[in-house]
Simulated scan of single mutants.
Amino acid sequence: MKLENKVAIITGGAGGIGFGIATAYVKEGAIVAIVDFNQQAGEVAIEKLKEISPQSIFIQADLSDHLTLPSIVEKVVQTFGKLDILVNNAHASRMKPFEETTKEDLDLSFGTGFYPTFYLMQAALPHLKETKGKVVNFASGAGINGDVNQVSYAAAKEAIRAVTRVAANEWGQYGITCNLISPIAKTPGIEQWAEEHPDFYKAMLSKNPLGRLGDPEKDIGRTAVFLASEDSDYITGQTLMVDGGSIKLR
């Protein structure tokens, strides 16, 4: 029970990687607040999680409404008395060639990915100071490699990497660690992308030494457990490539 009685916020927690992390967390004893725009998916997800962690809650929220983001943190702290872990997983974007990418495309990616990560970190900081908490953010090989047709997504993900490293340097004095996961996982979104872009999918898989997509709970979720537990107390500011070896950072 590596996360026993730890309180965690997980954005995008109603499905895919977010739900995989939430499941891995509650199995390790955590109380989770999953945040998602999709009311129906959130209600289904929280019922599954409550079978393991009855105190866990679902918060329906539009993360692009940035003025409301501090209220998410406040609700969790008021409900459970503290905050130990912040996982910024949610992100929406559109795939387009560089020359076709518009301000609206950039606004979508930054508005659902970068800005919620930034503002939730700011709102969570006073509470994470009290618990010597953990921040787990999400990077992407799209940003690290500069994948084609991913300019808006890649830009936002690299911005998230930048502010995570800054926070790691500034917040280390409080015992807070801030790290990133760069994943490849078998999610509904990836499966849809694979159907729409089979050549890109085959090329991605051909560069994976382990020859498979990660499991949202067993592969990505277990890594997120490690980064939220005391086992990672001496790791901060790092990007962990949980991608089957597809990218090897130097």
Rank of each mutant, 00 (worst) to 15 (best):
V242A: 08
K2A: 04
I184W: 11
L86S: 10
I52H: 07
G175R: 06
I220A: 06
G189T: 08
L240F: 15
T177G: 02
G146E: 05
A185Q: 00
F98K: 06
G211M: 09
A162I: 10
G13Y: 10
Q55H: 11
K132A: 10
A224N: 05
Q40G: 07
I9G: 00
G146T: 10
Y115W: 15
L86H: 11
E195M: 10
A167F: 12
T102G: 09
I57N: 11
K202A: 15
K218V: 02
E28R: 00
L3Q: 04
K218A: 08
R250T: 11
S109Q: 05
A185P: 01
N169W: 10
I10Q: 01
E170R: 12
G13I: 08
F58R: 11
P209I: 09
K48M: 13
G42P: 12
K248G: 07
F110M: 11
V35C: 11
A90I: 13
G143Q: 10
D84H: 14
K218Y: 05
T101F: 01
I160M: 12
K6F: 00
T187K: 03
Y119S: 02
S182V: 12
K103R: 14
E99P: 02
V135Y: 07
G141E: 08
D84I: 01
K186Q: 14
T223I: 13
